[in-house]
Design a protein around this nucleic acid. Sequence first.
RNA 1: GAGGGAAUGCCGGAGUGGUCAAACGGGAUAGGUUUAGGACCUAUUGGCUUAUGCCUACGGGGGUUCGAAUCCUCCUUCCCUCACCA
Length: 818
Amino acid sequence: MEIDFAKIEKEWQDRWEKAKTFNVNENSKKEKYYILEMFPYPSASGLHMGHALNYTIGDVMARFKRMSGFEVLYPMGFDSLGLPAENAAIKVGEHPKPFTEKAIENYTRQMKELGISYDWTKTLATMHSEYYKWNQYFFLKFLKAGLIYRKKAPVNWCPSCNTVISNEQAQGGICERCDSKIEIRHLEEWYLRTTKYADELLKGLEGLDWPDKIKAMQRNWIGKSHGVEIDFEVNNDTWSIFTTRPDTIFGVTFMVVSAQHENLMDLVTDEQKKEVEKFLKSVGSVSEKEIAELEKKGVFTGSYAINPANGKKIPVYAGNFVVADYGSGMIMAVPAHDQRDFEFAKKYGIEIRQVISGKLTKTRAWIGEGELINSCASGDAAREGHFDGLENVEAKKKIGNWLIKKKLGRNVVNYKLRDWGFSRQRYWGTPIPIIHCEKCGLVPVPEKDLPVVLPENVKFGKGNPLTTNEKWIKVKCPKCGGAGKRETETMDTFFDSSWYFLRYVDNKNNKKPFDKNKIKKWLPVDQYIGGAEHACMHLIYARFFTKALRDLKFLDFDEPFKALFNQGMLHGPDGEKMSKSKGNIVNPDEVSKKYGMDSARYFLLSLAAPDKPRDWSEKGIKGSLRFVKKIFSIFENVMFGKSSDDFVSKLNSMVKDVTEFYKSFQYRKATIKLKELFDLLIKQKEVSKEDLGISLKLLSPICPHIAEELWEKLGNKDFISVSEWPKINKLKVENKGKGTDLNLKIIEDVKYVLGKVENGNVVYLYVMPFELGKVDVGKIGKAVGKKVEIFAVNDSGKFDPEGKAKKAKPGKAGIYLG
RNA sequence: GAGGGAAUGCCGGAGUGGUCAAACGGGAUAGGUUUAGGACCUAUUGGCUUAUGCCUACGGGGGUUCGAAUCCUCCUUCCCUCACCA
């Protein structure tokens, strides 16, 4: 049988579109359900099968919820600004704008062909000034609220992208976008005060229905740690350093200040100046190497610090392994009990002073627990400063308190999370609405002048293209009317994606970023779906925005995404991550032509649980195609009539299971059940139209086109996609399995054993404790003509010489003849 | 170093206290159909053996329980994320 899937699919896609089947009804009385997939950056190469998997996972949920009686908001848009588009466009010699528009068009077409049930009236693209105008609007609001500030800071500079990039995007010293090595430069940049919400971002995780892994990653990223800030005296100045290990303070034998520390030179003596400068140069070159392989290096600054615990004079080094902007950029080094300090001390011949009992070796510091030794402050009459003999865990507190009491320290909380530097020296982004005026300094563009539209006429090549349009740059200062210059930096695209989910609900509003009532109705997002790679960037920024906008009275909820689901990655047929360079990309257009999208959807979901990775295989999809064809053949050959009781009972239990599976993203199990269901259906002599309809409904979230086609063949006039989800008929489910009676089974078994064993006048039965009441001893005794005694299997006083109780199973008794 | 996850048959993977030699699929083998291929259908796919039977098996050891793939504990291996954060 040849089935023209392409034709069927196209037909139903057209009919859905014409009937606006999936457009959300904003006035609906039904309970709302907002489901969202992370919007893609529209690349020129179009969708691949991995996208198809991602969107299918969301689509199945959207369709299931729709049929289950929810008013579903399921929009899609495009994260269309950003470096990749700019670079790709430059590469082919095109302007990013038409280039990206084309890509969006192509994506939209492909998404429609996948059969995804988006409401396209809600779409948006961040490249349109109607959208990024509100980026600028929020920028001004944040600026006013003190959430945005400027700071000169060492930044990650990517020489290839010609821009500053965030720590998150520069992990491992490699540019995330282009894999180039990062340089350190000191520039004045725009920062968003994400750290203001560090604690709330951490606490808010608790109530979220997110994968534990993602929550753990965020917790890690925020990196809250409790410790003590201790004052060290260096050259009559006070340097406060952060430590989580005050218990080791008596073991501090040197200090290390970060090579990037802004006040480093204050510490350097004239004699050491040359050495330090030489060292700093070498750090610059070394930092280009893979960070993980960096050797701990340092140089003596010439200065000494005083250890506040014992008054000892200890040298201060500058080191390449100390993070400049964590804590205070200087550390106390305890070589005996920290491996890094240990290696450093060995290298430069610094004293290693053990203060916790334990085994130090030639190559390893002792990092375990132990009793304190050598930890007494001298000349302390009250012996308050004597800590020898204490367990170090206890000593942490005691020494901390001692230092605090002596006003040499204080308890502090530290976060790894940094403020987010979000300005970029690139063209294809939202212009930062600031005007530089010689007289007035930095002047925000007045709200009424928004949007600051990104000029199209620029030259690409070296540096920031925006600097090449003089006409655009030259403006009057809004404050004094004098000559001003526009800010030529643009916003990181993560700014765009930090609030797009709010815009969908009111995407055409040109007065406000969104209407408060609409937000109230639809937000927060009930189910968010996307890859785990966004755990520490997009997902933190979006949460930050939500909290910031809440405090600015734009929103009245705390968390944007109630539930999050991470889909597994689709690998190529070779088991490798799909990528153009490996040539293992599977193109949905071709798959659709060859097998039909419904087969592909079914196949993708049947491969593995949706959160697990899976490999594409040509063989595998053929199996799914067989299944889909089988469904058609059933509907060609079936006899309409009355379903058998057995089938009805099984169908009902399947409705129950499949419903559960859809609810909880267990799509793979749903595909298994569906296979069982249709295998069962093919064996039926006669089935009612109603039951066939129910079967199709169960199938329709995964194979929507086929379900519609066959639903119509059954004589239905409406769309199955928005029909009511089948209800379970409980009576009929429980009908199942009624036939086997425990007593009859026991009688049968006893008779069998009697036939094998000669001796024995008493039948001893052993059953599950919960079955004890169900067994009719009299009836069994009568049937087998013996005396019967019964025990629960866990009865310790039972008579069971041969351990036959072990044979018992639910529904089956253990038998001993004695 | 910190955190997260996993280990089941030839393979992908169900199974989270009993009805499990383990769903479903793939692969393999045999048979049917077919001019052949493909497709489709049927059966088999741990071992002994043919018994309403036994043994072996869910990474390894130990434990809880009448009973463990499932719970606890230790170990091993693998994957992922973060990581010079003091």
